[in-house]
């Protein structure tokens, strides 16, 4: 990536809570007491059960949604409504169906990008995402996995201070998923944005993240909304050895945390 990089920005969430109105008029707490500080350039993965408020948390950081309590800040200042310091890749690809893949990705470019530089950047991202063949296709002509990569390219095109990725590789086959994980790390090395990444995949979190946030309800207080159960530091520099003992240990810890027995026997 030849572009001048926007500096990565730190993110902090202080006593953040979010409630939603239920159809019957009552309030349901989805997130509560979220305390999280993310260093500039750090990669943080969010793991948690379905419906546990992971997407909601990303939306709060993006400024697309507002917290009912607490503060959400990027670089020390509160997030604005639709904060342009961050870019989102949504859980669904959400491509504009009438636009070609190329023009969809171009939507992500920062305002005022020079046309030639913009075209070059989009072309490079499409190449990285292995979408060269799909450049002039429409979203209905490409596969779900391709659409998801296009959506990721659109967010990357912005070259933001904070990159918010909601299960960016969820629709990819296992092999493409590994390639894309490597690729994300490559892009991150050149353009070190702060990345907040939601995933269902424990291994993905272990490969990509500096820290893993486990989101969920506390067992002794069910129905009170998700909060941060644990924050785990992933040891070792990237690229990581998936088979390293410490990683294997963490994996079983995470799986237990998610309520899945890992059948792992710790070394004595």
């Amino acid at each position: 990536m030849s572009n001048v990089s926007a500096p990565a920005l730190r993110v902090s969430l202080r006593s953040v809570a979010r409630r939603f109105e239920q159809p019957d008029g009552s309030q349901r707490t989805v997130l509560r007491d979220i305390e999280l500080d993310i260093r500039a350039g750090e990669i943080v993965a969010i793991l948690g059960p379905s419906g546990g408020g992971k997407s909601t948390m990303l939306r709060l950081v993006s400024g697309l949604d507002r917290a009912d309590a607490g503060r959400v800040e990027i670089d020390g200042t509160p997030v604005a409504e639709v904060d342009q310091r961050s870019a989102v890749a949504f859980q669904e690809p959400r491509l504009l169906p009438w636009r070609t893949v190329e023009r969809n990705v171009r939507l992500g470019l920062p305002r005022g990008t020079e046309p030639a530089a913009g075209r070059a950047r989009v072309a490079e991202l499409l190449r990285l995402m292995q979408l060269d063949a799909a450049v002039s296709l429409r979203p209905r002509q490409i596969s779900g996995g391709m659409a998801q990569r296009a959506s990721l390219a659109r967010a990357l095109a912005r070259n933001p201070g904070v990159l918010l990725l909601d299960e960016p590789f969820g629709a990819l086959d296992a092999l493409t998923r590994l390639t894309m994980q490597d690729l994300l790390l490559e892009v991150h090395a050149v353009e070190p944005a702060t990345i907040l990444l939601v995933t269902h995949d424990v291994d993905e979190a272990l490969v990509l993240a500096d820290r893993i946030v486990l989101l969920g309800e506390t067992p002794d207080a069910p129905g009170t909304g998700s909060t941060i159960r644990t924050i785990l530091h992933v040891p070792g520099e990237r690229p990581r050895d998936r088979a390293a003992a410490a990683i294997v240990e963490l994996r079983s810890l995470l799986l237990e945390g998610l309520g899945v027995p890992s059948h792992h026997v710790s070394a004595p």
Binding site: L64, V82, V88, F90, R94, L96, R111, R154
Partner: peptide, 10 residues
């Protein structure tokens, strides 16, 4: 969803 994408990208 599409309108939100537009807003999200400024």
């Amino acid at each position: 969803h599409l309108v939100e994408v537009g807003r999200a990208f400024g």
